[in-house]
């Protein structure tokens, strides 16, 4: 293991947070720090030297046009890109000051602490109960599984709808319910960070607003990173917004700043709908 680094590295100070309306809550409390990170699929450079700090218990939205690398960056944070054989990375992503791309970092352990919710709801074709309990079970959870399932479903605002049919197949739920089940499934592992990859893009507006409300509640306990192609969504739910373009991080700031007075012309062009 690398010794945990006690001091933030100089590169971490690239935080473009200067114009923040209120002072940043203790910058040390940032579960994820991306340091000069680049990623390539074969010869295609998907992420170019991105540096970014994800503060704890806030919602960070990553926006940008299709193909800008926002999903790739998100998936880099819990090493879900490992399964693409042509991926090469440079730089570091630190989770609690440990480089997750170091040889001795076990992605299996990482993914329990940095959970992920996908674009399309992908519950297991098993019962609702098993969907929530499985992750805890395989990770050696020692507590009471029934309580854990109930608590997780409650946190995901799904309990009241499913409490009478916990042993029904999860595929009988509606799309929005399935997505909240996927969130419950991640929460059951008691993660620190939740990565959400366009979690509402397959849902109707009502289901979307329920998920957005849920995200707002979740941030009291979890650090949420949300990739979205929907700028209104980013504006509605996030505290900080990251704008990416062609693999580069263009600007990161408090959401209110990004959407009212961004410093970069490219950000201005994008949020005012001039491209993308």
């Amino acid at each position: 293991m690398n010794p945990p680094e006690l001091l933030p590295r100089p590169t971490l100070r690239v935080d473009t947070n200067d114009s923040s309306p209120r002072p940043e809550s203790a910058p040390e409390d940032a579960p994820i720090r991306v340091c000069d990170f680049s990623l390539a699929y074969g010869t295609f450079q998907a992420i170019k030297q991105v540096s970014l700090t994800i503060p704890a218990r806030e919602v960070t939205a990553i926006i940008g046009p299709s193909g800008c690398g926002k999903s790739t960056l998100l998936r880099s944070m819990n090493r879900m890109n490992d399964f693409v054989s042509t991926v090469r990375t440079e730089g570091e992503i630190l989770y609690r000051n440990v480089n997750i791309y170091a040889n001795d970092c076990d992605p299996v352990e990482l993914r329990r602490r940095v959970g992920m919710v996908f674009q399309r709801p992908n519950p297991f074709p098993k019962s609702i109960f098993k969907n929530v309990a499985w992750g805890a079970r395989i990770n050696g959870y020692r507590g009471n599984l029934n309580e854990l399932v109930e608590e997780s479903l409650q946190k995901a605002a799904l309990w009241d709808e499913v409490k009478d049919k916990l042993h029904q197949n999860a595929l009988t739920l509606s799309g929005g319910q399935q997505q909240r089940l996927c969130i419950a499934r991640s929460i059951a592992l008691q993660p620190e960070v939740l990565l959400m990859d366009e979690p509402c893009s397959a849902l109707d507006p009502i289901a979307t607003s329920r998920i957005e409300d849920l995200i707002d509640q979740l941030k009291s306990q979890y650090t949420v990173v949300l990739v979205t192609h929907n700028m209104q969504q980013a504006a509605r739910v996030s505290d900080r917004t990251v704008f990416m373009l062609m693999g580069e991080l263009v600007e990161v700031d408090r959401t209110s700043v990004i959407f009212t007075k961004p410093k970069e012309q490219r950000t201005q062009d994008y949020i005012s709908g001039r491209f993308g």
Partner: peptide
């Protein structure tokens, strides 16, 4: 998506 779901849960 099924594999990803399981892997993302630390399997």
């Amino acid at each position: 998506s099924l594999r990803q779901a399981a892997l993302a849960l630390g399997a």
